[in-house]
Design a protein around this nucleic acid. Structure first.
Lengths: 198, 198
DNA sequence: GTCTCACATGAAGGACCTTTCATGTTTAGT
DNA sequence: ACTAAACATGAAAGGTCCTTCATGTGAGAC
């Protein structure tokens, strides 16, 4: 039972709900959450304004519903892509590449997640603290396996999240690169050998 | 001559303009740009609604004015703090520390800059592309001085911006740390020696 | 075939927001 | 002190948006 959405009980209802979500995803990406009215969403879904309230209490609940969907989806992608990696190095490399491919394919996801800072600060904070926590656990595992240097896991996890996000910003959002192998290799080289000469 | 603001010509006018800006900075931080009405701003500044339009054409122009102010201010801080650094390493260390201190002191700056993604995408893009460009130039200089490894300057600059932003997010925005020496040292160690064992 | 619940509609009330402007007050220079 | 320009006011017009609800239609159970 999902508290954010009033789940439909017929095929027709499910179809309408999906149309609302698709319309909202597109509009939130194009115009942003605040500039998208419920009328815009229902217009995009080809339904009457009142129909919206059959499924959601308000725009905020719809937003939260989509955010959680994306946040699960992005994690699942990375988990699936990295679960068979042999080394921590390889896991990091594939994780970064998967992240870049994901936000390139779902640019709306990047927008919706960051926008939470301006819609619900606690949601935003929870998202990154939780993501950081999981990342830290992976780093600690890598340290036990003697592959990762003995550095502060929290510091390293936020560094790595920052790197993914900003490399993604430039190479997947600003530029429209299709192939991320080159940039991923460059990042991994710096993560491995540092940025300064010895 | 600034096109964003109608500059006042008396002390009284200057005082009113400052009150508007202070009120807006506080409210944009607390409630976000979109949830702040012009009435909220004028209430906070203790002036009548109409007075707002003596200084700005609309809320967007005020926003842009504040964004440019912060963006100059933050760069100036970093420039002043790093201009006497002897090495590229030291410059990076002091730059990061200054950035963290700045956004800790002016949390609104962090919010206002990121919020541009949801207010004016081109402004957001221009901000980071330009920042990245300047950062790259510094990196290239460091490479010529034989201090920085021969890596892609754009990749490295976006990595470093990402690191600053996310370390800032966790240690200056989420947590309320006052002293950043420890976390800066930890970051610098990873930037120097990488994250993996050899 | 009929009954019932699920779903859909769109007009309308009400809240909120931006912006203008005619009027009034203050400031700075002479 | 006088005057012209600068600044301040707040009521009100006009717009957008959210949300409700009485009414209507469709779909599945028996």
């Amino acid at each position: 039972m999902n508290l954010l959405v009033k789940e439909p009980k017929t095929k027709r209802g499910l179809n309408t709900l999906n149309r609302i979500c698709d319309s909202a995803k597109q509009l939130f990406y194009e115009k942003g959450y605040h500039n998208t009215s419920i009328n815009d969403i229902t217009d995009g879904a080809n339904i009457a304004p009142g129909t919206f309230y059959i499924y959601f209490n308000d725009k905020y609940n719809l937003y939260k519903y989509l955010l959680l969907q994306y946040s699960h989806d992005i994690r699942k992608s990375i988990r699936l892509a990295t679960e068979n990696c042999e080394s921590r190095y390889e896991r990091e490399r594939i994780g970064l590449k998967t992240f870049l491919k994901y936000i390139h394919k779902h640019k709306n996801a990047y927008h919706i997640i960051w926008e939470s800072l301006y819609i619900d600060y606690e949601l935003f904070r929870a998202y990154y603290v939780d993501f950081g926590q999981r990342y830290s656990n992976g780093i600690i595992a890598g340290q036990k396996e003697n592959e990762v240097r003995n550095v502060d896991p929290t510091v390293l996890s936020f560094m790595l999240m920052g790197i993914s996000n900003f490399i993604g910003l430039n190479y997947a959002i600003f530029a429209d690169g299709k192939d991320f192998d080159d940039v991923v290799d460059k990042v991994m080289d710096i993560l491995k050998n540092g940025m300064f000469k010895k």
